[in-house]
Write a protein that binds this DNA or RNA. Structure first.
Length: 775
DNA sequence: CCCAACGTCGAG
DNA sequence: CTCGACGTTGGG
């Protein structure tokens, strides 16, 4: 044991267990606990003889390189608001949620428990050599060691891709300790985040109790739950090894089995995980399911065939397509029904939440999926599972990539115990459903043009498809950092089976991918690891359309975050405020946000979230959105704390605003004029309270809108008359005035407008009462 | 030394 | 169970 380690032990002992901790606080909270401080496990170690071989855990620290680390503090999140620099009390001492490190690293002071030296991967060439010389921290015993310093080099370790320099060391692994006991160290991610979104896992645990026994397969939170449950009964050794139940939710998202051989300089070989106990069995079975992230890109068939032998069930490949169809049928019928039973919806979200919690849950996914296959089908659930599975594979692969970027140079065991049992395109069709072209709800109207609307006499009630109100109460947000999408992910060329690379370079492929619609991209993502990486490039996902997707699951949310779209359409969905808030806070580059037909409760998330780049906001037909709500939306931050001096509206950069179908009055328009100086396109169609006076206000001298407005839609505003046209003459940049179906606007009025404007600008009637400037 | 913030506890 | 609080670690 290294001296530093011993010193650590003493330190911890002193602080944690042997001496009363000096406390200012009324309650000696931490002093009473051996697990109080990070790293205090060494204290625990001394307390427990069973932990003799374990090391003090080193607190991890930011990598300082990832996208999150390089961000600035948002100044608006919970933790930022706590910071002294933002005028808060500074008690919480947490990192900005936008800056939660993606890949926290071992501190520079970390050294090998055997040789006492730091990581030396920089001193050697070659991936395997690098691996053997880098420090690896065991997620079970916390020992930090150079793999090269291991005595028994034949023993296998399981690399945890979730964190750099993290594995289950051969000792622990060999002893049959499973990752379920520990989460990876340093995985605090967002643990203090308020408003987590993922409550559903509990539901799923209850619904599918067997999942809680699939230790390696459950999501972090599921696992946490599992472990918590296990805690009282687990053996003392394990209990001691665990620093605390809360620490234990390691999403063992993926395991890579490693084996080192003295005789082989490329010492890591691929080997199946042995099944020594039921746990292992299930683990490996499940691992088999998720093992799509292979080091080598492989043919579609190759991925599927080996795993078939593992399919214990009556499931056959031939069924999959049929199943898929069934699901789609079910899906469409569900859509037609326009509602989903609450229970089903919840289970949908449970599933989503479960999987969203982390790639490891893919295992659970697969399992539950398998299980579900044997049961009468629950289409919605199935759908969600498929979605989850698919997405998690993507996520997993993304994480792989990140792991590699972090210098992990470990070979992957290719799906040791067989691979995913389902054909790869199974499930992608569902992704298609939500990531692809919008779900159409019985051909319902999304059109904003009055042409489709005009046929109804009472547009609003008729047009508003009934989005699922009251989203499941248990919607809980993920507590994990959702990793950003890869940018130009390696490799540069597609590796082929023969060890060579495909002749085409990544950018060529990207050019091809860029022509695919999202559903096809999803299919591509299931082809091989490399394609998966490439296809997750956010350049391919600038626009994500979930219009009319009835149930927004946490899984979808994480999928969105990973793709960092510039444009997001959540119209007519049942997204909740919490979900939307969570999303917005994680999409700093969002420019287009469509929330038509959502509830005001959800849209109100915009009041507290920051989206400084937002250019295009669509809140048409949002129920309950009236003047007061517009005020809330546009009001600048109310606090005057340091760092919050910006008194401008959060929506100050909006250029295109759609307020169709809202009961807003001139009060709202005044606010808009005041707070949206860049507004150029304004849609007020179907706003029955809009009058000539409103137009007068919009075009009055001294208003910004007078000059900024280029497009105005007042169609089906029955209180607007020809008088408005005279007001529009003041607008220097107006290009289009839509007065279609305004009963009080006359053709003559329009013609007069054209005539009078012709001195400076040529307008023409594109349609009756639709005035457009000739370019 | 200071600041940032990890990882944990425990009140509610 | 959630989330505020905070001792202590890690970087500079």
């Amino acid at each position: 044991m290294a001296m530093s380690l011993i010193a650590d032990e003493e330190d911890y002992d002193n602080s944690d267990s042997e001496q009363p901790r000096p406390l200012n606080r009324p309650k000696p909270k931490m002093g009473s606990s051996p697990c109080a401080a990070p790293g205090s496990t060494a204290g625990g170690m001394k307390l427990s003889s069973g932990r003799g071989s374990s090391s003090a855990r080193r607190r991890r620290t930011r990598c300082r390189k990832c996208e999150a680390c390089t961000r600035k503090e948002c100044g608006e999140c919970h933790f930022c608001k706590d910071m002294k620099k933002f005028g808060g009390p500074g008690r919480m001492k947490q990192s900005c949620i936008m800056r939660q490190c993606i890949a926290p690293v071992l501190p520079h002071t970390a050294v090998c428990v055997v040789c006492g030296e730091a990581g030396k991967e920089d001193t050697v060439e070659g991936e395997d050599d690098k691996f053997s010389m880098m420090l690896m921290e065991c997620s079970i015993c916390s020992e930090i060691i150079h793999p090269a310093c291991l005595k028994d080099k034949d023993a296998g370790g399981v690399v945890n891709d979730e964190l750099p320099n993290c594995w289950e060391c051969p000792k622990c692994n060999h002893a049959g300790k499973t990752g379920k006991q520990k989460r990876g160290p340093g995985f605090k991610y967002a643990s203090n985040l308020p408003g987590s979104l993922l409550k559903e896992q509990r539901t799923i645990i209850k619904e599918e109790p067997d999942m809680s026994t699939e230790t390696a397969a459950v999501s972090p939170i599921t696992k946490r739950k599992t472990e918590d449950d296990d805690n009282p009964t687990c053996k003392s050794e394990d209990a001691i090894k665990k620093r605390s139940p809360k620490l234990e939710d390691n999403p063992l998202r993926k395991k890579r089995k490693l084996f080192e051989k003295d005789s082989d300089s490329n010492s890591i070989i691929r080997k199946k995980k042995k099944r020594t106990n039921p746990d292992d069995l299930s683990t490996s079975l499940i691992l088999g399911h998720i093992k799509k992230e292979r080091e080598d890109d492989e043919e579609y068939e190759e991925q599927n065939q080996p795993e078939r032998s593992f399919v214990p069930s009556e499931e056959e490949d031939g069924d999959d397509e049929r199943d898929e169809e069934e699901e789609e049928k079910a899906l469409s019928s569900r859509k037609e029904n326009g509602k989903v039973s609450h229970k089903t919806l919840e289970s949908d979200q449970s599933q989503g939440g479960l999987t969203q919690a982390g790639p490891s849950s893919t295992d659970a996914q697969s399992k539950s999926q398998r299980k579900a296959k044997r049961k009468p089908r629950l289409p919605n659930k199935e759908l969600s599972k498929e979605l989850s599975k698919q997405l998690n594979q993507e996520i997993q692969k993304t994480e792989d990539r990140l792991a590699h970027q972090n210098g992990r140079t470990v070979k992957t065991e290719p799906s040791s115990d067989g691979e995913d049992r389902k054909p790869l395109n199974n499930g992608s069709s569902h992704l298609r459903d939500w990531l692809g072209p919008k779900w159409e709800l019985n051909g319902s109207l999304r059109e904003q043009t009055p042409v489709s609307l005009i046929r109804t006499t009472t547009p609003a009630p008729v047009f508003r498809p009934t989005p699922c109100r009251s989203p499941p109460k248990c919607v809980q947000m993920e507590r994990h950092v959702i990793r950003p999408p890869p940018i130009s992910p390696p490799p540069d060329r597609l590796p082929l089976d023969d060890g060579k690379n495909h002749v085409l370079r990544r950018e060529v492929w990207m050019g091809v991918f860029s022509h695919l619609i999202h559903k096809d991209l999803c299919v591509c993502m299931s082809v091989c690891k490399t394609w998966n990486r490439w296809c997750c490039d956010k350049r391919l996902w600038t626009k994500i359309d979930l219009n009319r997707c009835k149930s927004i699951t946490p899984l979808m949310l994480s999928g969105i975050i990973r793709r960092q779209p510039v444009s997001l359409d959540l119209s007519w969905t049942n997204i909740s405020k919490k979900q939307l808030s969570w999303l917005i806070n994680r999409l700093p580059g969002l420019r287009v946000l469509l929330l038509a037909g959502c509830s005001w409760a959800a849209v109100s998330a915009l009041c507290t979230s920051s989206c400084p780049l937002l250019r295009n906001l669509d809140v048409q037909w949002v129920e309950g959105l009236k003047d007061n709500q517009i005020r809330d939306l546009l009001s600048p931050p109310t606090d005057n704390r340091p760092g919050q001096l910006d008194c401008r509206s959060k929506l100050r950069n909006v250029e295109d605003l759609c307020l169709a179908g809202l009961d807003i009055t001139d009060t709202s328009l005044k606010l808009i004029i005041k707070h949206m100086p860049l507004l150029s396109q304004l849609d007020l169609s179907y706003c029955n309270h809009i009058t000539d006076h409103s137009v007068n206000i919009l075009t009055a001298a001294g208003t910004t809108t007078r000059d900024s407005l280029t497009h105005i839609n007042l169609s089906v505003c029955n209180r607007v008359t020809d008088l408005s046209l005279t007001y529009f003459k003041r607008c220097g940049n107006i290009c289009q005035i839509d007065l279609r179906y305004c009963k009080q606007v006359t053709k003559e009025g329009c013609e007069q407008f054209i005539a009078e404007m012709s001195v400076s600008v040529q307008f023409r009637l594109m349609e009756e009462k639709l005035l457009s400037k000739l370019s």
